[in-house]
Design a binder for these strands. Structure first.
Lengths: 151, 151
DNA sequence: TTCATTTACTTGATATTTGAAGTAATTCGT
DNA sequence: ACGAATTACTTCAAATATCAAGTAAATGAA
């Protein structure tokens, strides 16, 4: 194992740990303040950006989870009256999910708090570092999305 | 919301996405090649580094999961003969978990492949970028571990 | 010592996530 | 237009993870 490999391994370990820690922090804050969770928040965030709603498949791609899980999440959020589902007029197989008015209000409140928490955590980095890290992550993300990622 | 806040949010989003993508890639490769998973691998990796074994509580701190989950994971790995548990001689409440010889062999094989996968993914970054990112993540990690992290 | 507290885990009930298999609607080639 | 392949989802079972008790051992103060 070369030095570069060793460094890659250390980097991945730290990337994973740090992300997990931030994730848990945000998740537990969402639970505490809003009785919600990060996955739910993420799903609502995607819908917020899509005024015309999204199909189940689009949701599952965007929040990086399986179709079965999206079905489950949407059912739960629907029960809480935060989203609605309707059959697509152009494709009867597809379901279109939208935020309800309640969902929008609820999300806006959460998003505001979430923003503050995230800003607070990453404020420890300089603007320069934040931009550098964003770019570096972009490279990794592209790499991991390309076809022959897993040899 | 200031520009800095917006950038923090974008950074967090990308951090989360990238980490999740790498995680899934590694997890599915471990499944495919070794019928294992990332959480199992992580647990074994901690034990590998601790020749004297670790207590359940130490494991749960290190792999960032709950005690109940560690009990579950260890039980599964024990059934596969990869780890053993014994009562601590100095504290009868505590259980000490160790790798078995089989566990060591099994882990060594996985670790080798895992190393290659990770090295391959992060080889897209320059050595300089890897070091920079490692340092930047260190700052965030420290921040998120400090007491008044969630205001 | 002796009992209240704390600590280390386990348990059991739930919640979440995955993956494979099933259903219905659409599309494509003919 | 017709059936085969594909696509969009749902379902169900199994794997994982959390949380809130519960149990037993260790600690510590009176």
């Amino acid at each position: 194992m070369s030095t570069a490999d060793r460094e890659s391994l250390r980097l991945w370990l730290r990337l994973f740990t740090t992300t997990t820690l931030v994730e848990r922090q945000l998740d537990s804050a969402l639970k505490r303040e809003f009785s919600s969770t990060l996955p739910r928040f993420d799903l609502l965030a995607q819908l917020e950006r899509a005024p015309d709603g999204l199909r189940m498949g689009e949701l599952s791609e965007r929040i990086l989870t399986t179709g079965g899980n999206v079905t489950w999440l949407v059912r739960a959020l629907e029960a809480e009256k935060l989203v609605t589902r309707c059959v697509s007029p152009t494709d009867k197989r597809a379901a279109i999910v939208r935020l309800t008015a309640t969902g929008k209000r609820h999300f806006a409140a959460m998003a505001h708090a979430h923003e503050r928490w995230v800003a607070d955590i990453f404020a420890t980095l300089s603007a320069l570092d934040r931009r550098a890290m964003h770019a570096q992550l972009g490279v990794v993300k592209t790499r991991v999305r390309s076809p022959r990622s897993t040899p």
